[in-house]
Structures are given as C-alpha cells and as structure tokens.
Design a protein around this nucleic acid. Sequence first.
DNA 1: CTCGAACCTCAACCTCACATGAGGTCAACC
DNA 2: GGTTGACCTCATGTGAGGTTGAGGTTCGAG
Lengths: 155, 155
Amino acid sequence: MADPWLTIGALSQRSGVAPSALRYYESQGLLTAERTSGNQRRYRRSTLRRVAFIRAAQRVGLTLDEVAEALRTLPEGRAPTKADWSRLSRSWRPRIDAQIARLELLRERLDGCIGCGCLSLRSCTLWNPEDRAADEGTGAVRLEPAAPRRANRDG
Amino acid sequence: MADPWLTIGALSQRSGVAPSALRYYESQGLLTAERTSGNQRRYRRSTLRRVAFIRAAQRVGLTLDEVAEALRTLPEGRAPTKADWSRLSRSWRPRIDAQIARLELLRERLDGCIGCGCLSLRSCTLWNPEDRAADEGTGAVRLEPAAPRRANRDG
DNA sequence: CTCGAACCTCAACCTCACATGAGGTCAACC
DNA sequence: GGTTGACCTCATGTGAGGTTGAGGTTCGAG
C-alpha cells in the first residue's frame, strides 16, 4: 500500500495548489503537518480534502480568515465526516444567493437607467443606489463604495 | 449662483469619495482638474458625473484601468451627452450577466454536492479544481465577498 | 494682516493571497 | 559516498486601490 503520508510536493500535485500556498495556509492556521526528523512536512491524506474545502470556499468568496474560522468548528480528535463537510458548505448557500441578488438588482437598475436615459446624479437609481432623494442642486449625493475585487491566478 | 468650480473637498463631500481617492484617480488619468494660481485643484461640475460613472463601473467589476479606457472613448472638446454615458454603461450588461451565470452554476454545483453527499475529490464538480481553468479562462472576475469592505472616508 | 482650515506633494504603508529568490538542508537513488 | 532534486526558512515582491503622515503652502473669513 502507498505511504499514508504526503510530502508537500505530492499534496501540491494532487490538489493543484502550489507549495508556497500550502505553506502559507499552514502559517495562517488552515493546515497542519507532521514533520520528519529533518524538519520536512508530512501531510495526512485527509489534508487533501481539507485543501479542497479551502479552495471551494474561496470560490464561494470567503477570505482565508473566514475559512480558518469555519475549519475551527470541525471536531478535534476525530476525522471530519461527510456530515461535517456538508454542514460547512451548506452555510455558503445564503452567501451565494445574496451575491446573485445583489448583481440582479444592479442589472435591473442598469436596465432602468439605459431605458429612461436619466443618468442624473439626483434621480438615477444606478448612480445613486441609496436613493438619496432628488433634492435641490446642492443636496448631498452619496455613492456606494466600490465592490472589492480579487484577481487571482493559480500556480 | 454658485461657484461653477468645485474644490476637492466639495467634490469629495458631494460624491462620497475621499480626497485621497480623487487625487489617485487623477494620477491614473481618470480625472482632470484645473489649478488655481496657488496650485489647488478646481473641478468642473461635470466631474461629479464622471466620478459617479467611475464608482458605478467599479460596482460592475471593472478595474480602474478599464474605466480609464472607457473614459478615453468619450469625445474630446465637448461635454459627454446622455447618449455617450448610455453607450458606455450598456456595455456592462453582458459582464453582469456573466457574473450572475457563474454564480448560478456554482450554486447549482453546491446544491448537487450537498444533495449527493459525494464530497469526493475525484467526482465532485464543486471540489474538483480541474474545471477551474475553463471557469476562469475568459478573463473571469472572481467572486466577491457578500459584505463589501468599506473604505474609510476622511471628509 | 492674521489665523486656522483646507489644500499641496511625496513617500511610505495597508490588505490579501500568495510568488520568488537566497542560502542552506534532506532524502533517495546509484 | 556523491549527486540531484525536493525541501526548509526568511525576507522581499506583487498588484489593486487606495490611506496616512510629514512638512509645507494657500484660501478666505474676520
């Protein structure tokens, strides 16, 4: 049978995640590894699923901090079961729903603006998302802050 | 009647965008300003709409580089018309559609994974990183966190 | 004219999620 | 035992989109 331990290179190959990223995850408390007498990392096979979970969570939009927090709710002492993983990933659903809803609202407003051609800071819901009303010319107009972006490449 | 020129503080207040951000936009070629004899910025009132456009574009997921490129297609010499702004913002529509489609696919996969309980690295499309290339292939925008980060505003 | 608030530039710093490189060590095969 | 490649730590870099602070200048009300 195969060696139950994975080197960082093996884990990297099998997960598609760069070694530098795996070390970074460890530094952030998302992964743990045993060490050889020569200080090299040796991962349990269950780490594979943990890494998969991390990547999936990132795709849903969680930060690594949030992923770490979620992982801390896993039971200590025993290997996580399907139910454990399912519980965690089920919690992502509302987040995705919210993201979709936000985008649909944006699209709706965009359509409205193109349709009506208003494009006015005072009256247009796209430019003026918080519905700060159409005061006189000197009224305060607030725009929403920009949506954060994360451009990310894989190794 | 009011002064047709806006100071950076006034523009900041009326747009909700920090002065430091406005200076940054100028450094990136998104805004221009006249200067007083004492080197202080004075913005035309049309800059207000330009700033609104920038923020709206960011919400749709454009980078400032892309916004700058879009703004360069505006006519020089004359003030942009409704048709000009409409043309630019209409081009955002497919981008929003794509983002929504991507999220819906993710949600579908998430449902499938929770439903079937597979949670397998080899068979589950959610965990499986192999189709990530296809997913991100066309200059994809990454997912955004549900709660947008708020930038500080010095006002 | 005075004075404080607002403005200026420039440089340094921040977050996030890593990548890269230097300089050195370990493990496995021949 | 030698070689080679994989591994180690630590420091520094990346990029987007800014913020913060120092040190100095300008504006405009009184």
